[in-house]
Simulated assay, not measured.
Amino acid sequence: MSDTAGDPPYSAPSVRRIELLDLARGLALFAMASYHFCWDLEFFGYLEPGTSTQGLLKAYARLIAGSFLFLAGVSLVLAHGWRLRPAAFLKRLALVAGAAAMISLATFLAIPGSFIHFGILHAIAASSLIGLAFLRLPWLATLAIGVICLILPAVYRNEAFNPVWLSWVGLFTVPPRSNDFVPLLPWLGPFLIGMGLTGLAVSRGWTERLASVGTGASRAALATRFCGRHSLAFYLVHQPVLIALVWTFSQINPPPAPDPLPGFISECRISCEASSSVAFCNQFCSCVTDELLSQNLFQPFVTGRITQESDTRIPAIAEQCTARFK
Rank of each mutant, 00 (worst) to 15 (best):
D7W: 15
P9W: 01
Y10F: 08
S11L: 12
S14T: 11
I18R: 02
E19K: 05
E19N: 10
L20R: 06
L20V: 02
D22A: 06
L23R: 08
L23S: 07
G26P: 08
A28E: 10
S34V: 03
H36R: 05
C38P: 11
L41M: 04
F44S: 13
F44V: 12
F44L: 15
F44Q: 14
F44D: 09
Q54V: 02
L57H: 00
L57I: 00
K58Y: 13
R62Q: 08
L63N: 07
I64L: 11
I64G: 05
A65C: 02
A65K: 02
F68M: 10
L71E: 08
G73V: 14
S75M: 06
L78A: 02
A79D: 13
H80F: 11
R92T: 06
R92C: 06
L93D: 04
L93W: 15
L95F: 12
G98I: 00
T107K: 07
T107W: 01
T107E: 10
P112S: 06
F115W: 11
F115Y: 13
I120N: 02
H122F: 09
S127Q: 05
R136A: 13
R136H: 12
L137R: 12
W139L: 13
W139Y: 14
L140W: 06
T142R: 05
A144Y: 10
G146Q: 05
G146R: 03
V147D: 01
C149V: 14
A154L: 11
V155W: 02
V155L: 10
A160I: 10
F161V: 12
W165F: 14
P175W: 02
P176G: 12
P176V: 07
R177L: 15
R177A: 14
D180M: 08
V182R: 12
V182D: 14
P183V: 04
L185I: 03
P186S: 03
P186F: 04
W187N: 04
G189W: 04
G189H: 05
I193T: 12
L200F: 15
A201V: 11
V202E: 11
V202C: 06
G205W: 10
G205F: 09
W206Q: 11
W206R: 09
E208L: 09
E208P: 05
E208K: 02
G214T: 09
G216T: 15
A217N: 13
S218Q: 03
A220M: 10
A220W: 04
A221V: 05
A221Q: 09
L222K: 02
A223L: 10
F226S: 06
C227T: 09
G228L: 06
R229K: 15
S231F: 02
L232Y: 14
Y235A: 07
V237E: 15
Q239S: 04
V241P: 12
L245W: 04
Q251H: 15
A257Y: 11
S266Q: 14
C268G: 06
C268M: 08
R269P: 03
C272P: 06
E273W: 01
S275Q: 03
S276R: 08
V278A: 14
A279L: 15
A279I: 13
S286H: 11
C287F: 00
D290Q: 14
L292T: 05
Q299A: 14
Q299D: 12
F301E: 15
V302D: 01
T303H: 03
T307L: 08
Q308M: 10
E309D: 15
E309F: 15
D311G: 08
T312Q: 13
R313H: 04
A316F: 02
A316D: 07
I317G: 00
I317V: 01
E319Y: 03
T322M: 01
R324F: 00
R324Q: 08
F325N: 01
